[in-house]
């Protein structure tokens, strides 16, 4: 486009964007920059800030498990998310897309959990998983698997997988709806042609559906990872990060370092590092999309 001086009218158009921009600048961009600046200080939130250079980063990355352990836990949630959760979402979307009887009802049901808040979901499942009165353990005892009736959220080995399971329950509906919408965009003729050629369900899925869905699978997977890495509510309600830090996640850890330990500089450092990881993951999405287009 040719460069020409701005007309008065066009400068006035800035007013359309200004309210959004100011809000955004004050509550997102300014905190983002400030966040970054605080990481170089040691600060208890009350007294003078003390410049400490990269000490916070050194501590988070190399000296203390405060960063990597929660990241590992969140990565576990994310991994379960992209494998089991999205696999399940894809499977169910694929079946519902076949328009069997009651498909519409199932579509409504599978999207109920995403409508609920993580607080509600946390309480519902906490009650089911309760060690003594919880219905899961009662059921296990009843069918003779009494030895399997564990304190699901109270043991280091089981707490994280249990939370991951609840997270899957809570979030697979998002992927389900996305996949279903994408599936419904695929021409039926392709399936017909495949069926005439004698393809069975699985060939149909692997040879036709899956490749066509790859872009949306990538998007949903990245969103799943981003969501899991930022999980806080569910952990807060179900385990509070315990037992013994077994379900500690990054946001949870930040909250603790700032509001309980009063280490604001350190807490913001964890935030910046988490943001960096999320940034890399988002870049990855763009790159993968590019590859998919080329391919």
């Amino acid at each position: 486009m040719l460069k020409r001086p701005w007309k008065r009218r066009e400068i006035m158009y800035l007013f359309f964007v200004l309210p959004a921009l100011i809000f955004f600048g004050v509550f997102v961009i300014y905190p983002f920059i400030k966040n970054f600046l605080i990481t170089f200080y040691s600060w208890d939130g009350l007294n003078e800030m003390e410049f400490v250079g990269l000490t916070n980063y050194k501590k988070a990355l190399f000296q203390s498990p405060d960063f990597w352990k929660p990241i590992k836990n969140a990565a576990f949630l994310a991994l379960m998310g992209i494998s089991i959760q999205n696999g399940l979402a894809l499977l169910l979307a694929w079946i519902v897309d076949k328009e069997l009887k009651g498909a519409k009802l199932y579509r409504v049901i599978f999207f109920i959990p995403p409508m609920l808040s993580f607080v509600v979901i946390g309480f519902l499942w906490k009650w089911i998983l309760e060690p003594n009165q919880g219905i899961l353990n009662i059921f296990l005892k009843n069918i003779g698997l009494g030895s399997w009736a564990l304190a699901w959220l109270g043991m280091r080995e089981t707490a994280l997988p249990t939370v991951a399971m609840v997270n899957i329950w809570a979030s697979f509906g998002w992927g389900f709806v996305m996949f279903l919408a994408a599936l419904q965009g695929i021409e039926r003729d392709i399936y017909e042609a495949a069926r005439i050629d004698g393809a069975n369900h699985f060939q149909e899925f692997w040879k036709i559906t899956f490749p066509l869905l790859l872009p949306i699978i990538t998007s949903v997977s990245i969103l799943t990872i981003l969501g899991a890495m930022q999980q806080f509510d569910l952990i807060y309600v179900m385990t509070g990060g315990g037992p013994a830090g077994a379900t500690e996640v990054p946001v949870n850890q930040m909250y603790m370092q700032a509001f309980q330990n009063g280490m604001w500089g350190y807490a913001t450092t964890l935030g910046v590092l988490l943001g960096g990881i999320l940034f890399v993951i988002s870049l990855l999405q763009l790159q993968i999309k590019k590859w998919l287009v080329d391919w």
Partner: peptide, 8 residues
């Protein structure tokens, strides 16, 4: 995202 900057 907000969860990374909520402290500030």
């Amino acid at each position: 995202p907000l969860p990374t900057i909520f402290i500030t």
